[in-house]
Design a protein around this nucleic acid. Structure first.
Length: 648
DNA sequence: CACTACGCC
DNA sequence: GGGGCGTAGTG
């Protein structure tokens, strides 16, 4: 398309190829044209209260939890109010500030949370509820998805859509690559595939523009060797489109729900995340590829995701600096000398702006926790059980919103954490699959776990207690009453084992005392969660072959093993699933083929990549531990560029 | 399975 | 800095 012979004087070709453009389509992590957004609600809990109470946007407000503040809105910040202040101190600094206490559960009030005037005085009987914020978070997420969907209608061929990863209650990552791809093709027909597809390594034609209009976007300054006068290349155009989509999303969130948020747009998650924090509140920041080096060089690496904790401390101690700019001078070998290979390469790439971690299409919680710290500690099982009852009600309420009643999603494991001063311990057990989950069941299971803990070690004074559920499985038997076909042996077993300290009636008591060996629980767990399992003595998976059969590249994170036994409940021939890599809806029976395709593509990308960077080292070492042993465990999960180097 | 680390409001 | 979340990795 671009005819090199007729090139105008100063026209260099694009730095990008058809291949790199094409990789955008399915959100490959390998292309430099990739566009990732990070969106972060401004002082989220505080905004929730502003919206709920209908306070003016410019009125100072903070969210209070007992005597401390957990969120401070932007209008309050010029008064010097920070999260480390007490409510009284805050009021001194800003007499007009609204200090709204979080909603609470209260002992003996039926497991319903409420906003109460006197909750801050009742730390002894109340338990914080973050439910109102979770509910708002859900609405916002839906609004984001809805707006993204309007960008998916590209009129032609496939409907491409964006992966959305809920990173926390108030943050999402979005992989905009497929949307940007289709907008690019609409606006620049010269990019469309032609007969010269064959030569995918050919450079793209130059964009027809000499300047990009960034409107209100905040831009990170270009690297020293770049100037704004240089003509834009396709990465700039792609960023601009990404930024346009983000602006539209933010507008929708504002117009529909009255929340402001800040966003970062860049070529990967790390940069997008750093970018979103650059201009707050209510702004979006674009980190162009040509700005990355200067941008990062100005940071302390301890501000980069994953480096804020002990790892960052270690690195600072090893190399005597926390400046990215100085760490850039440390060659890879020297990083390797101090850090394990994986971490060293990860760090080396990260401070150079390379991050191939994927945007996981996950918007649902993987666990739910309800907790309480005791400020005088508690000292009896009676006291503990009062809280367990509240925890159970709290969690049950959330499960209902999550769809337990309709059997859409169901946790398989329940865990109790217990802390006596510095020492913390936890116990977990399967949630019997035969029971319908309700408050009572959760409470009874919690009591069992509590008794185990108490029987085992010094349990008092207890300074912290929490209950959580997790290991969700979803899509379990849509409408059929699950109990109806679980009868026979299965049920018999589940009742006789997990249900042993029966749950309904006046449990015959007799805490399992001495024979609560790990083995036994293990057996129960195996029964409920993983159908068949090859003998488990590690070793067997030393190298090649076992890996092969579990390669199963993509997600499936929660799909398999639902139909725990012989009865293959549903008709699989029409079942569908959404591919976590490209968000296409695929027929179940085409799954293998589809995943193979991704797999091949990844290998291709990887090869290409390794050819370019001298140091390989990836093909030999499967992470020595984890990975290979159980029959199942961490099958596919796309996160974190590093998977499946294990073979070939 | 129990524990630890990390990150966020 | 602490309470109350949530996620992922390790042996």
């Amino acid at each position: 398309m671009s005819d090199p012979t007729a090139s105008p004087p100063t026209l260099t070709p694009s730095r990008y190829t058809y291949r790199q453009l094409q990789l955008l389509r399915h959100g490959s992590t390998a292309t430099p044209l990739r566009i990732i957004a990070h969106i972060d609600l401004d002082a989220f809990y505080a905004q929730c209260e502003m919206v709920r109470l209908g306070t003016p946007r410019d009125a100072p407000l903070a969210v209070r939890q007992w005597e401390s503040l957990i969120a401070i809105n932007y209008p309050a910040r010029p008064f010097g109010i920070t999260r480390m202040l007490t409510a009284a101190e805050a009021r001194k600094l800003c007499p007009t500030i609204v200090l709204q206490h979080v909603a609470t559960f209260r002992e003996g009030e039926g497991g319903r949370w409420a906003y109460r005037d006197d909750s801050f005085k009742n730390i002894k009987t109340d338990k914080v509820s973050l439910d109102p914020y979770r509910a708002e978070s859900r609405k916002i997420l839906e609004t984001i998805k809805d707006d993204l969907a309007t960008w998916s209608e590209d009129g032609q061929t496939k409907r491409l859509s964006a992966n959305v990863e809920k990173a926390s209650i108030d943050e999402v990552f979005i992989d905009l690559s497929p949307l940007v791809f289709s907008v690019l093709l609409q606006r620049y027909p010269e990019l469309r595939a032609t007969s010269q597809d064959e030569n995918r390594d050919a450079e793209l034609p130059r964009p027809p523009t000499t300047a990009v209009e960034w409107n209100e976007d905040c831009l990170i300054d270009l690297d020293a060797n770049e100037t704004e006068e240089d003509d834009p290349d396709w990465d700039d155009i792609a960023m601009r489109i990404g930024s346009e989509i983000v602006r539209s999303v933010r507008k929708a969130v504002w117009e529909k729900l009255n929340y402001t948020c800040s966003a970062g747009v860049a070529r990967n998650k790390m940069l997008a995340k750093l970018g979103s924090a650059c201009n707050k509140p209510d702004k979006q920041t674009v980190v162009r590829n040509r700005a990355v080096q200067l941008f990062l060089a100005g940071y302390k690496f301890t501000q980069i995701r994953m480096l804020g904790g002990k790892l960052g401390d270690q690195i600072r101690n090893f190399f005597g600096t926390e400046q990215v700019s100085e760490l850039l001078n440390v060659p890879l070998d020297q990083l390797r000398a101090k850090l394990d290979d994986h971490t060293a390469t990860w760090l080396y790439n990260t401070i150079r702006g390379e991050d191939r971690s994927e945007v996981n299409p996950r918007t649902q919680m993987k666990s739910m926790l309800s907790a309480k710290s005791f400020r005088p500690s508690i000292n009896s099982i009676d006291q503990a059980e009062k809280w367990l009852r509240i925890f159970a009600a709290d969690i049950y309420g959330r499960l209902v919103e999550d769809g337990v009643l309709e059997n859409r999603r169901r946790p398989r494991v329940i865990t109790l954490h217990h802390r006596v001063t510095a020492q913390s311990r936890s116990r977990q057990m399967p949630i019997p699959a035969s029971n319908t989950i309700d408050e009572g069941l959760l409470f009874d299971l919690a009591k069992i776990l509590m008794r185990q803990v108490v029987a085992e070690a010094q349990a008092w004074p207890c300074s912290n207690l929490s209950l959580s559920v997790g290991s969700f499985e979803d899509g379990v038997s849509k409408n059929k009453a699950i109990e109806s076909f679980l009868v026979r042996g299965d049920q018999a077993k589940s009742l006789s084992q997990a249900g042993r300290p029966r749950v309904t009636d006046g449990l015959s008591d007799r805490p399992p005392e001495k024979r609560r060996k790990v083995d036994e629980n293990n057996g129960i767990d195996r029964f409920f969660t993983k159908p068949p399992r090859p003998s488990d003595d590690g070793a067997t998976s030393s190298k090649g072959t076992p890996e092969l059969e579990q390669l199963d590249p993509t997600s499936t994170a929660e799909a398999p093993s639902l139909f725990s036994s012989e009865e293959g409940i549903e008709d699989i021939s029409t079942a569908q699933y959404t591919c976590s890599r490209c968000s296409q809806v695929i027929l179940e029976h085409e799954r293998d083929e589809h995943e193979d395709w991704h797999f091949a593509k990844d290998l291709d990308n990887q090869d290409r990549e390794e050819a370019r960077t001298t140091q390989s080292q990836s093909r030999i070492a499967p992470a020595p531990n984890a990975r290979g042993r159980g029959g199942r465990s961490s099958r596919g999960k796309p996160e974190k560029g590093q998977r499946r180097l294990a073979f070939q």
